[in-house]
């Protein structure tokens, strides 16, 4: 008489599947925002929340709807980085670039690339070297200067004990007129959370 496992191929299949699934690494491609928060540190959820809040706030800024702004269509640029005054090595450039992407895609602002200037100059120099067809090369003197700069600061206050960590982030952004130094818009976003570790690890 055959053993039970050989008489029931379906049972054999289930056991094999369990073994295979059990051994395979678990990969999940769709992650909820809350799942990106694993502790009190800066997370992808915070990045998303801040960029959405700031883009929305800039879109509602008074100066955006003025006739002058619409007519002049001034170019914007990002400050080199968002000043990081926290106790974490946050990639602040990502926050700024995410906001820039949303502003460009929504048609709210046109940006000049603050980091591409050296590449552009190199390319212009090459194209003006005589090796290229004059009619097809990029013209010099056509670079557009930015009139508005988007800058800001991220700071934090942290209270930590052995198993509790309370963090408060404050992200402040400003749009500054480069010619006049006038702040045209500013807003801030606060994020706070408390994390508590389990006694056992």
């Amino acid at each position: 008489m055959k053993p039970l496992i050989l008489r029931q191929p379906f049972l054999l299949l289930i056991i094999a599947s369990i073994i295979c699934i059990g051994c395979a690494p678990s990969i999940k491609y769709s992650i909820a925002d809350d799942e990106t928060v694993t502790g009190s540190d800066w997370s992808a959820r915070d990045l998303k929340e801040v960029s959405e809040y700031m883009t929305d706030s800039i879109g509602k800024a008074k100066f955006i709807g003025t006739r002058r702004y619409i007519e002049d269509a001034p170019r914007w640029m990002l400050a080199r980085d968002l000043r990081n005054d926290t106790d974490e090595h946050v990639n602040t450039r990502t926050i700024m670039e995410k906001i820039r992407t949303k502003l460009i895609n929504s048609g709210t602002a046109k940006f000049v690339d603050d980091q591409a200037v050296s590449d552009i100059l190199e390319q212009l120099k090459l194209q003006q070297s005589g090796l290229f067809d004059n009619a097809a090369v990029a013209k010099v003197g056509k670079l557009v200067g930015a009139k508005l700069i988007l800058r800001g600061t991220i700071s934090s206050i942290r209270k930590r004990t052995e198993r509790t960590d309370i963090i408060y982030y404050n992200i402040t952004l400003q749009i500054v007129n480069i010619e006049t130094g006038e702040i045209l818009w500013t807003d801030e976003k606060e994020i706070q959370r408390l994390t508590h570790k389990s006694l056992f690890r």
Binding site: T161, E162, R163, K197, S198, L199, F200, R201
Partner: peptide, 9 residues
């Protein structure tokens, strides 16, 4: 920081 204040049984 992760193990601070915790106990491994």
């Amino acid at each position: 920081l992760t193990i601070e204040g915790t106990i491994s049984i």
